[in-house]
Design a protein around this nucleic acid. Structure first.
Lengths: 356, 356
DNA sequence: ATTCGTAGCGAAAACGTTTTCGTGTTGACA
DNA sequence: TGTCAACACGAAAACGTTTTCGCTACGAAT
């Protein structure tokens, strides 16, 4: 078991100085050809690789991105990670992953753990509890320390940083319009509580689309599900939806804000003897495995998670590499970098069997 | 934007030496109470936190675990990550994630990128391509550099390291036995090509279970699916299974080595007018979202991915923290640490609607 | 013969810590 | 008054790099 070799050892072995080794390996022409060759050969033989930690300390940057998400066992979030990892790797960065598990405290702990030099910047999506508390001081704190943040999907406007979001509003309009066009007259909405921003936006889109088609929204046709931090109560969910359907038997179209609600709605509908899509059409937000493999397969609004990840990573790395140059130009605190971008990823409707 | 404060700055500000600050902050009684209080107060005010990179360099350990998996948009792998992250965090470690994307080359690149000081050890699952090539030199290389590896799920015996695996063999036997007990006479197997070790083991379990019940295996009842590095051809998969069913119409039970195959089999069966579980029963390996939300919901063999992750992390960290002490005791290369463990996680059958 | 330029290399600082080993200043004690 | 602990602190090394600056020696130019 030979530990990794260092510059110092090479230097001692070859009887030159550390600086000479370093320069020779980087191909500096300060060093004679003879010496360079000798050193490079030796280094290759012993498979020398510069120590990342030492480089990080010296360069004051780690070439590592911190990802902080509420949950990883989740199709959407894992596609986002895949996107981030893809471009991060391509651009020479690593990714370190933290899970908040939807908890405010874990979010803070994780941020503090990573913000002390381990990473160059954050890509994150806010936990539900944080959204509920509306306490965002930890985000501002890290930003003030000079560590850039990119937020995706679950974002808040008050934080000054780059953002990548899905056009929840427009996506919902598209979905509801499609239901209308395909003949649904009484379109129900199955959504979450309002504090999750995306839920609210999708609800707004639903209402807007109805009004645009001169349909008066009926509050009885809106089911708000309280998934308060737990979403393992499959039975409860089914029952709730079943009651909802039973007390509104004119429903012939459903727009659900996520695929679980949509698939469950289909299940319940079938149980009630309704045929899909003939009696009732269903569209869900968030295109995941469930939608694709359900029977009938589900028409969805795809969020392009991977693209969200890619854009987030590009945004962050662009900013990091920009800062490199201007870090000394703009000591002027005020007018620097107030050009934060918000990228909107267009949604796309993927038609499958649950619509006509 | 104030950069993070360092010991040096505190020292200069308070007109003491760096060592004094360091000692005061760690509560050394070498420093007078007065000075200690003054320094601690100042540090708290400016929210001092030690720089992780500097600590890593000094201590020659990063308190970071590298995870290297073939794919992240995958229920099983993401549950494993969740498990790893859980205990890693609890024990003061971070996790950095690399994706091989089932590619041999990406696996190597990722390992080299991380093995140069960024992490203390690996937890990984081998990519299909590597398994196919049977080229494991990169694993041995990193182990020889003194970096411990824990392999999970997709492992190979020839590598000397800790391992955490699922009892694929026994799990399959349990599943097939259940089908037999519940009345299936002609049980089909839908599996992958043999080079993926878990596929092979599950096939063996299937055969073994049949023979134990004096049922002669029929090679016509075994469908091997070539998912060679791509598994997006849903249509192809359906067609293949449909042909399979049509040419073996006596099939009244199906054991599939993953949930996608199982769910697709159910879909096809229903299309062919078979009712589940009355005409045909289905069990799948790997308990994921699909199984739970399919209609009918699928009886599965659960692998307890999270537990796999937890155990892997514990195994790795145990070894890391053990090495700390003995690193000087055992300079004797030969007899050190040959006590590698292989932990077997028991599977569990989760009964749902696809069996009687 | 003196000056100069340059090729080739080494010393040292810096990144931010921790820790070992001094060192100077007290007070007590003989 | 001189010796010796104990106390409170500082200097410096170490982790592994990169980079700036300086130094030496040698050949060329004046």
């Amino acid at each position: 078991m030979k530990r990794k070799i260092t510059l110092k050892q090479i230097a001692r072995e070859l009887d030159v100085s550390i600086s000479t080794v370093s320069k020779a390996l980087s191909g500096s022409k300060e060093i004679s050809e003879d010496t360079t060759q000798k050193i490079q050969a030796f280094a290759k033989l012993y498979n020398y690789r510069p120590n990342n930690i030492a480089l990080s300390l010296k360069n004051r940057k780690t070439k590592t991105i911190g990802i902080l998400i509420p949950e990883i066992v989740h199709h959407f979030f894992s596609t986002v990670i895949r996107g981030i990892e893809l471009v991060a790797n391509k651009r020479g960065y690593n990714v370190i992953v933290g899970l908040s598990n939807e908890s405010f405290t874990k979010e803070i702990i994780n941020m503090e753990m990573l913000a002390n030099g381990s990473i160059d910047g954050f890509i994150l999506s806010i936990s539900k509890e944080t959204l509920l508390k509306q306490d965002y001081h930890h985000f501002n704190a890290t930003i003030n320390q000079g560590m850039p943040i990119v937020m995706f999907d679950r974002v808040v406007n008050e934080i000054k940083c780059d953002k990548v979001i899905v056009d929840d509003y427009k996506g919902s309009i598209k979905a509801v319009n499609m239901l209308i066009e395909k003949g649904s007259k009484n379109i129900a909405l199955i959504t979450t509580m309002d504090y999750v921003s995306v839920g609210k936006l999708r609800t707004q889109g639903y209402l807007e689309a109805l009004e645009a088609s001169k349909i008066v929204p009926d509050s009885n046709l809106i089911l708000k599900i309280d998934d308060s931090l737990v979403d393992e109560d499959l039975e409860d969910l089914e029952n709730e939806i079943e009651q909802f359907f039973k007390s509104n038997n004119k429903i012939d179209g459903v727009f659900a804000v996520n695929e679980l609600y949509a698939v469950t709605a289909m299940k319940v509908a079938r149980k009630l003897g309704l045929s899909i899509p003939d009696d009732i059409q269903v569209i869900g937000f968030t295109d995941g495995v469930l939608s694709k493999h359900a029977t009938p397969s589900l028409t969805t609004v795809s969020q392009h998670g991977q693209k969200i990840g890619e854009q987030s990573a590009d945004l962050l790395i662009d900013r990091l590499e920009l800062e490199e140059d201007e870090s000394l130009d703009y000591t002027d605190e005020n007018e620097r970098n107030e050009n934060f971008k918000t990228i909107i990823i267009e949604t796309e409707i993927i038609e499958r069997e649950s619509t006509k």
